[in-house]
Nucleic acid binder design. Structure first.
Length: 242
DNA sequence: AGTCATGTTGACGA
DNA sequence: CTCGTCAACATGAC
């Protein structure tokens, strides 16, 4: 379910609940449900993989992790994590990590790190990366403080598109190549959004979950490199190890 | 039926 | 204190 673009789709899907009053809140989320009742939603935002439902002086941070789902005016049979009842509608979340946080998201988030945000700042991202020269690029790309919203699918695709071997150390990658990677992280995330909305995401995958390199026609490696040990698909021939 | 995965956090021991 | 490893959470596709 959840990389940044999928959370943007969720945000858009529930945008109509903005300025609506929560009549009742239920579910097994470990938050004070009473705090939500009779409160009006003031904005619905996102930061990377975080969905933010904001009220006057607090907000809900909803993270779908790996298996999180939601339903509008429907319910699943799995345990309800959080259900928000409005006058004529219900919004249900399942298997999500939900926290109620006092204050405004502006007090906490660096919007310039979110690849889906207009405020994303390439220069700041490059500066953050320069501080991590010994890290493998496959780990750097998943660093949510630098590339908030980038997940394992986007990681694999942008390293393939830019022809960077996932085990390359960040400090060894030429500046122009590094800049291209950051630009591609943003550009591909919006492609992901467009394709996902059209239910055409999978058919655009070049490396993720693929067996063969679409450029060289040789088998792709499938390994779990770096600190994060997330699945990496790569071609020894097409991708350069820096 | 067992394995695996678009994710993150916290406990624990070296 | 830091590092790495593991468990936990929990669902559904294959």
């Amino acid at each position: 379910m959840p990389e940044g673009p999928s959370i943007v789709i969720l945000k858009e899907a529930i945008a109509r609940f903005n300025r609506k009053k929560v009549i009742k809140a239920t579910g097994n989320a470990k938050i004070d449900m009473k705090r939500l009742e009779n409160k009006t939603i003031r904005s619905i935002r996102s930061w990377g993989k975080h969905l933010l439902i904001c009220f006057d002086d607090f907000y809900l941070r909803i993270h779908l992790l790996m298996f999180g789902t939601y339903r509008i005016n429907e319910q699943k049979t799995t345990p309800l994590r959080l259900g928000l009842q409005f006058k004529n509608d219900t919004l249900n979340f399942y298997t999500a990590a939900i926290v109620l946080i006092d204050g405004s998201p502006d007090d906490y988030y660096d919007w310039s790190a979110d690849v889906m945000n207009d405020k994303f700042d390439t220069r700041k991202a490059l500066k953050k990366i320069r501080a991590l020269p010994d890290e493998m690029i496959c780990d750097v790309v998943l660093d949510q403080e630098i590339f908030s919203g980038v997940g394992n699918i986007i990681k694999n695709e942008i390293l393939f598109i830019t022809r960077i071997h996932p085990e390359s150390r960040a400090g060894n990658i030429p500046a122009a190549k590094m800049r291209a990677l950051v630009k591609t992280a943003v550009g591909y995330s919006f492609d992901f959004l467009k394709w996902k909305k059209a239910f055409q995401l999978k058919k655009h995958w070049l490396a993720y979950a693929k067996k063969k390199c679409p450029r060289c026609n040789i088998p792709l490696h499938k390994e779990y490199p770096g600190r994060k040990k997330r699945r990496s698909f790569f071609c020894d021939n097409y991708q350069v190890r820096y």
